[in-house]
């Protein structure tokens, strides 16, 4: 399975990763190897196997609609690189015209 350098750049951009040209080349090669390994699964006949998204045989795990105390605001904000009062502070992002 092909995994071109352009695709590495695209995925890296989506994941907000900044990679050097050397890294892009290296990851492209490595990802190709990984994907071709995983591609072996395509050799299996899976017509009789129902699709699965889970490795564990469990379903319908719910919780009741009951309140559990939330974190204290100070605690919630304690890992924040920046804050203002009770808010998390982030670089300005605005979607406008």
């Amino acid at each position: 399975m092909a995994f071109e350098e352009s695709e590495v750049r695209y995925v890296a951009a989506l994941a907000r990763l900044s990679l050097t040209d050397e890294e892009i080349h290296r990851f492209s090669t490595q990802l190709k190897q990984i994907l071709s390994y995983v591609d072996k699964l395509n050799q299996l006949k899976t017509d009789d196997i129902s699709p699965t998204s889970h490795g564990i045989p469990m379903q319908n795990v719910f919780r009741k609609d009951e309140v559990i105390p939330s974190l204290d605001v100070e605690k919630a904000l304690s890992n924040a690189p920046a804050r203002e009062g009770p808010f998390f502070l982030v670089p300005r992002v605005i979607e406008d015209a």
């Binding site: 998390f88 982030v90 670089p91 300005r92």
Partner: peptide, 8 residues
């Protein structure tokens, strides 16, 4: 301001 506030 160059910052935005977030309430989760």
């Amino acid at each position: 301001s160059r910052a935005s506030l977030v309430d989760y």
